[in-house]
């Protein structure tokens, strides 16, 4: 049995856990805790170690999806999680421009850990106050050749589309 892994990263509350939950065939093994910081009390709980989802391809191949903790104080986990990844997805909350700078920094950090293919998913595009994709590309300072994809982490087709785009990028770069 061979296993490969992809990493889903991004700032706090960008939708990483939901993204993995939407396509995982197992209940996501999520290590969440109540949010303690007042500043981060946008949601009740957050990932402190990692999320873990699985998609069985066939008898010989399994894809694991790992979600990184979003809070900066757990960034020591990032390098460990990025080891041996096939590619990674940077989730960005399209409705929270104040997190764009952090998303950019996370992207740079992961690129430094492992120069594997990646895509950027502009999550929550179904929300009324979501930024336009073109505006986000400028704000995130993404090169034109980096895929910035509209996404809704709770929508299965949308998540599939992001994963397929990443796999397409991997195939192109092989």
């Amino acid at each position: 049995m061979q296993t490969v892994k992809m990493v889903v990263t991004g700032p706090f509350n960008s939708g990483k856990t939901e993204f993995i939950q939407t396509v995982s065939e197992i209940d996501v093994v999520s290590t969440e805790r109540k949010v303690s910081s007042e500043a981060e009390k946008i949601k009740e709980s957050t990932t402190v170690a990692m999320d873990f989802g699985r998609i069985t391809v066939d008898d010989e191949l399994v894809l694991y999806l790992f979600g990184t903790p979003g809070q900066k104080r757990f960034d020591f986990m990032w390098e460990i999680l990025s080891e041996g990844m096939l590619g990674f997805i940077v989730m960005v909350d399209s409705t929270r421009p104040e997190t764009f700078k952090e998303a950019r920094a996370i992207l740079e950090t992961f690129r430094a850990y492992a120069p594997t293919p990646y895509v950027v998913a502009a999550n929550k595009q179904d929300m009324e106050d979501a930024w336009e994709i073109d505006d986000m590309r400028i704000a995130l300072r993404l090169d034109p050749d980096v895929k910035l994809l509209p996404a809704v982490a709770v929508d299965r087709e949308s998540v599939k589309s992001v994963l397929l785009e990443l796999l397409g990028t991997i195939l192109t770069e092989l």
């Binding site: 061979q2 490969v4 396509v23 998609i55 069985t56 391809v57 066939d58 191949l61 894809l63 096939l86 299965r156 599939k160 994963l163 397929l164 796999l167 397409g168 991997i170 195939l171 092989l174």
Partner: peptide, 19 residues
């Protein structure tokens, strides 16, 4: 090798499409 890697990625693509 490269061919085996491509084959593996194509299997992943096929599986994701079928979800």
């Amino acid at each position: 090798n490269k061919e085996e890697q491509k084959n593996l990625v194509n299997r992943l693509i096929g599986r994701i499409r079928s979800l």
